[in-house]
């Protein structure tokens, strides 16, 4: 897959290295609970794929599982520390496109909490807090200690030290409204946005996407595959060719609100040359 950066014109308020800022943001979102985690106790040869994950307020990577409901914890049912590999995979936001967008990988040590007091001291938030509140003490909660976290995405492999867990513990502004705005944009308009980046009319980054011979996996000329407060990621298809196209959003100078992303997205659509608009904006 080849990589191309399209840098002009650069949105004035983007960070000095917007691609690195975006990768860091995606890593934080995945650590905080996006994607699906699979734990592998590689010495025991056991895998646990039913857990949910997130980061506690104190910046610890936490997993939770409900054993004895649909399955047993198997080799993970132990009071001892367990050497694990954690893989968290994140797929396309548009579920009609079977595309793996990014994954996080780490080696660490899993230790299950002994009792509810220990769980309470973690300061759970998000889906972990909801699960513990809904299900109660039957939820098994564990902490994974790690020193190195690797993001594998369309720009390659990026390594982070454990300090990124503290970043992920801080709630980022919601992107739900932006997500809705991008997902409801017509595929033809998304294709116009992607083409504007490919033609250097809008700033952004593009990567070639290897397509299988069976191109029936592709439904539309363009799909939204991720929405981040820094950047919208699209997949663009023409005939037997495909690209992943990342379009940075100009960020506001003031503290971002939930609506700022939507406004930035609309400005971006308005900045497309008129001839490119091939479908009505929602």
């Amino acid at each position: 897959m080849s990589s191309t950066s399209h840098t002009s014109p650069t949105p004035a308020s983007m960070a000095a290295n917007p691609r690195a800022a975006h990768a860091r943001s995606v890593t934080g979102r995945i650590l905080a609970g996006e994607g699906a985690i699979e734990l592998t106790a590689y010495r025991a040869g056991e895998t646990l794929s039913s857990a949910v994950h997130g980061v506690s307020r104190s910046g610890q990577l936490v997993v939770a599982d409900i054993p004895n409901l649909f399955h047993s914890l198997g080799g993970f049912h132990t009071a001892d520390d367990i050497e694990v590999r954690a893989d968290i995979v994140k797929d396309s936001a548009d579920h009609r496109l079977a595309l793996r967008l990014a994954s996080l990988h780490l080696l660490g040590t899993l230790r299950w909490c002994r009792d509810t007091e220990e769980v309470g001291a973690l300061g759970l938030q998000g889906q972990l807090a909801d699960l513990v509140q809904d299900v109660g003490p039957r939820v098994r909660v564990g902490v994974i200690s790690t020193e190195r976290i690797l993001l594998h995405d369309c720009s390659g492999v990026t390594a982070y030290d454990a300090a990124i867990l503290a970043d992920a513990a801080t709630a980022a502004p919601s992107t739900d409204a932006l997500h809705d705005a991008v997902m409801s944009t017509a595929a033809e308009t998304l294709a116009d946005v992607a083409d504007a980046v490919l033609d250097d009319i809008l700033p952004g980054w593009t990567e070639r996407l290897d397509l299988p011979e069976d191109t029936s996996v592709v439904a539309d000329p363009a799909h939204c595959v991720d929405v981040d407060r820094h950047c919208v990621t699209l997949a663009r298809f023409t005939g037997d060719q495909g690209w992943v196209v990342q379009v940075p959003l100009p960020s506001p100078a003031h503290a971002p609100s939930a609506q700022d992303g939507v406004i930035a997205w609309r400005h971006l659509l308005d900045s497309l040359p008129a001839r490119r608009i091939t479908a009505p904006r929602p």
Binding site: H152, S155, L211
Partner: peptide
């Protein structure tokens, strides 16, 4: 081998034909 199935946007460490582009078995 995870190349067996769906579309994958993750860029390999190398893109040479018939090479291991990336391996997730960190251990």
């Amino acid at each position: 081998c995870g190349t067996f199935v769906q579309l994958d946007a993750r860029r390999p460490v190398t893109s040479d034909a018939g090479r291991v582009g990336a391996c997730h078995r960190l251990e």
